[in-house]
């Protein structure tokens, strides 16, 4: 059962990711990226990370991509102009990505298929919360300062000068 779900979701994730980076219309890009993020959330749930699956949907699909849509609507859905000059490095970039993907896949395949041992560790909100308030308290506080800095920075950047 989990196997069938995984392969269906993986296929959907790859297709929607390809649409998200190739379609000309930015609204379509964002909406198909929502599908990809939902598929990644299903993968988290399959891996036992239930809290992260919820957080993925809440933060990425709920907050970040809505922010993207808001900015696209604000700027009047700017599409891409035709290229001013054809980009000379496109072939090189494609080759680089193909090598990257091939090397990564080869490394994974060469190590063979390995199954996780059943460990009994659950990624529910209680366990994650205990770790965040316990050993990772300093990083947790630091990340809140970072979010505050990003908030102030964004406000300063979009402030009108007059």
């Amino acid at each position: 059962m989990a196997t069938i779900v995984f392969y269906l979701v993986a296929l959907a994730a790859v297709i929607s990711a390809i649409v998200a980076v190739t379609h000309k219309n930015p609204v379509f890009n964002v909406l198909s990226l929502v599908v990809t993020f939902f598929c990644v959330a299903v993968n988290y749930a399959l891996l036992g990370a239930h809290f992260l699956a919820a957080a993925q949907i809440l933060i990425y699909a709920g907050a970040i991509l809505v922010l993207f849509l808001f900015v696209i609507m604000l700027l009047g859905a700017p599409g891409e102009d035709a290229a001013l000059v054809p980009r000379p490095f496109q072939r090189g970039a494609g080759l680089l990505l193909a090598i990257l993907f091939a090397a990564g896949s080869a490394a994974v395949v060469a190590t063979g298929t390995f199954l996780a041992q059943p460990s009994g560790v659950s990624g529910g909100p209680r366990e994650i919360g205990r770790l965040l308030i316990g050993p990772y308290l300093f990083a947790f506080e630091l990340i809140s300062v970072l979010l505050l800095a990003a908030l102030v920075g964004a406000l300063v950047l979009v402030r009108r000068k007059d």
């Binding site: 790859v14 990257l100 994974v108 190590t111 298929t113 390995f114």
Partner: peptide, 18 residues
């Protein structure tokens, strides 16, 4: 849970390249 970990890694590689 019978999906090998390496298949999740292959999916991650694919998404990263895209």
């Amino acid at each position: 849970m019978t999906v090998p970990t390496s298949h999740f890694l292959l999916l991650a590689t694919c998404l990263f390249a895209i």
